[in-house]
Simulated assay, not measured.
Amino acid sequence: MNQSRTGEFYGQTNKTINLEGITLTDTVYTHDRVDWHYHENAYFTFILQGNVIEGNKKEIYSCSAGDLLFHNWQEPHYNIKPEGFTRGFHIEIEKNWFDELDFSTSNLQGSMKIVNLDLKFLLHQIFRETKADDLTSQLSIQSLLLEILSEMLQEDKTQSHKNPVWVSEINQILNDQFSDHLTLNYLAKIIDIHPVHLSRDFSKYFNSGLGEYIRKLKVQKSLQLISQKKQDLTTIAFDCGFSDQSHFTRCFKEINGITPSQYRKILFG
């Protein structure tokens, strides 16, 4: 089985940044299929554009722009790239980086597809920092990366306690219907709990209020559409359930720190 060394991915590398124990790579995938292989470092894969399918010993993930994967070192997997342009952003972390920070990784084993929206937005921030390339970029990248890893460990502890059934039900409904006009009574009725219960306990499991979480889902969807470069921002705003482009811009900037047009410029140069 092939082993990929630091900074080595199957494609055309646009840019590589080497920090102290961290390597960031922006890669266009050029292989339709990559057979079973593993990497010498733990790493994140963040899909910037296009689609990719990844399989490991336990699961198969279908990923599109905005999706985020984490792999522990030497975790075997394979990749299939559907037809079309696909681009990925990778953050490799050497073992000595964890060791020097006395950061335990015992609960970060295997491969996983990360669904936490806040972690995806933090990855967006790291990608943007690679474009800033100023004197504070390295510090910012390291700080953001530690924030992501710490949140993953905290999330792992939380998930060891079984969540109520309604948590997965409401998450599925919101992911399917986030662009619709949703009401509290409708959501409470469909999952069969009291509206007060839903309002009170939602943030306990989703790390944000109900309305804020829906806005995050809309912005997440917009990132995927922006990456396709097929629609103007007004069309994207309506497709994602925003009332108009100005509302879309306000929400996007509040969550990502930049406007949709600024992000599009960073993504496409």
Rank of each mutant, 00 (worst) to 15 (best):
N2W: 08
Q3T: 08
S4H: 11
F9N: 08
Y10T: 04
G11S: 13
Q12F: 10
T16S: 09
L19P: 08
E20S: 14
D26I: 06
T27E: 03
Y38C: 06
H39Y: 10
A42K: 13
F46A: 06
F46P: 05
K57R: 07
K57S: 15
I60Q: 11
Y61D: 04
S62L: 06
C63S: 10
S64W: 07
G66K: 07
L68V: 00
N79Q: 13
N79I: 09
I80M: 14
K81V: 09
G84M: 15
I91A: 02
I93C: 05
I93T: 00
K95W: 05
W97L: 08
F98Y: 15
L101H: 07
L108N: 07
Q109P: 01
S111E: 03
K113Q: 04
K120T: 10
F127T: 03
E129A: 15
D133Q: 15
D134R: 04
Q142Y: 03
S143V: 00
L145F: 01
I148C: 10
I148Q: 09
I148D: 11
L153H: 14
S160Q: 14
K162P: 04
K162E: 05
P164T: 03
S168T: 12
N171I: 08
N171A: 15
I173F: 03
L174G: 05
H181I: 08
H181Y: 12
N185Y: 00
I190M: 12
I191C: 04
I193P: 09
I193V: 07
I193W: 06
H194P: 03
H194V: 01
P195W: 06
P195T: 01
S199N: 15
R200M: 13
D201T: 08
F202Y: 10
S203P: 11
Y205D: 08
G209L: 02
G211D: 06
E212H: 05
L217V: 13
K218N: 05
Q220C: 00
S222F: 05
Q224L: 12
I226E: 00
Q228M: 15
Q231N: 09
L233H: 12
A237T: 05
C240T: 13
F242K: 09
S246D: 08
H247A: 08
C251S: 14
C251W: 07
G257A: 02
T259V: 00
S261W: 02
Q262L: 08
R264N: 06
K265F: 09
